[in-house]
Design a protein around this nucleic acid. Sequence first.
DNA 1: CGGTTCATTGATTAACCTCAACGACCGTGG
DNA 2: CCACGGTCGTTGAGGTTAATCAATGAACCG
Lengths: 240, 240
Amino acid sequence: MPNSRRVIATSKIRPATAEDCSLCPAEAIGLFSGTFRGQRSYLIDGFRIVQAAPQQALYGLGDAADYVFILRYGLIKLVRHTAAGNERIVRLAGKGESLGLEALSGKPYRHTAVALSETALCRVPAQVILDQERSDPRFVERVMSEMQTELEAADLFLTDLSTGTAHQRVARLLLHLAQREGGAECFLPMREEIGALLGITMETASRVTAELRRSGLIGLTADPQRVALDVPGLTRVASG
Amino acid sequence: MPNSRRVIATSKIRPATAEDCSLCPAEAIGLFSGTFRGQRSYLIDGFRIVQAAPQQALYGLGDAADYVFILRYGLIKLVRHTAAGNERIVRLAGKGESLGLEALSGKPYRHTAVALSETALCRVPAQVILDQERSDPRFVERVMSEMQTELEAADLFLTDLSTGTAHQRVARLLLHLAQREGGAECFLPMREEIGALLGITMETASRVTAELRRSGLIGLTADPQRVALDVPGLTRVASG
DNA sequence: CGGTTCATTGATTAACCTCAACGACCGTGG
DNA sequence: CCACGGTCGTTGAGGTTAATCAATGAACCG
């Protein structure tokens, strides 16, 4: 194992505790937030906290889907492959978002899910959610709402990240990542991953980010994996 | 009105009858098919049959969403706009598919829906479906399954129709359209629409389709709006 | 016939892909 | 400890693809 980023460690899995829920960074959003806070305490027996290191896969396309995941922190890519066999990232999941909702329809996972950064998730058996839906119809609305969020994200990929020049796409990606973190800086994926996200080659992704750095639109931060954004400047680039 | 394709006629709307349901071309698939056939007879009072001509809009992005639609026949495009202001088609709906499921989450419509061909739909009040979910939990699975189908379609647009060369994308689009019609021919959209579907310009779409016709990979049919496909040949083009 | 839409095609330019080389970094093992 | 091998990022040269600008032709309708 010559490089730590390639280490595929075994998942760390442990039962969830009440404290996990009360401290959950995804408390304010997502499936079990708000009015469903109280119900978690009844269900928590089935919950598991899963930690994943960068490059580690949570599940694979076609796997039998028994669990829904709720992201506590970190960033996860949902991957498919193009007809040419290249990796294509079709979605990114951030804090509070749900993954693997297809488990609720008894279908296999529709993507391969891979951690981009250090990540923690709450693993919920699909059956627990299905039972919950039966006992509380309002929970159905919550689940459907999560699916709508996922559809919205898919449309955003099509309209914002798959059209325009490479410069525009990179700028929109960075702005989008920063916005979801709520600040003026963001995680900067590997060039290969930027390419898979935007439908461009690794080289083009590299050239564009290098140019953005040289023109001062993105700058270094303490963490070498993260960049500071000139939001107004990038917004100008993003719209052409 | 210089050209009939630009005519925006008033929608034809009429109450649905039991005969509509028994003859429904979407009988075998979709929300109310199969085991839910019988239940339709109780709910049919709220159903309306809507007919739409080409270029006619069913609903617009941001409109209050009170209805879910089930497509009886025809082809409908779901449209958004890119940051540059260009039209971007993010999905196509064909026979038996549901549109406007966001109505079930009380959210406004997330797209503008426009008929590409002569079209008939069944318009179902969202409230009817929500009531149905309450009285029969199995119906919830059906609705979630429809949303998963929509997500699958979104991923297909990202992996198949937004990557590769213009030739590959056009070939994949035609094969995809033919497959959903179950034959070796398909509807051929206007060049502008092909461009909006594939993220290329109208001129490129025109050049590619003209070349495909010259090389015999697509041929004329009785209907000038439809083309016959050389499926093996196009499959070769599609994979590069 | 005149006006409009749509499709086609050409010429030119701009953007991106491909192939290739190189340097920085890092963990490993001699 | 330092050389080695690996990954990742960067950059260059050259070729290909597609966008852009522009003009023309076919079909249709009033």
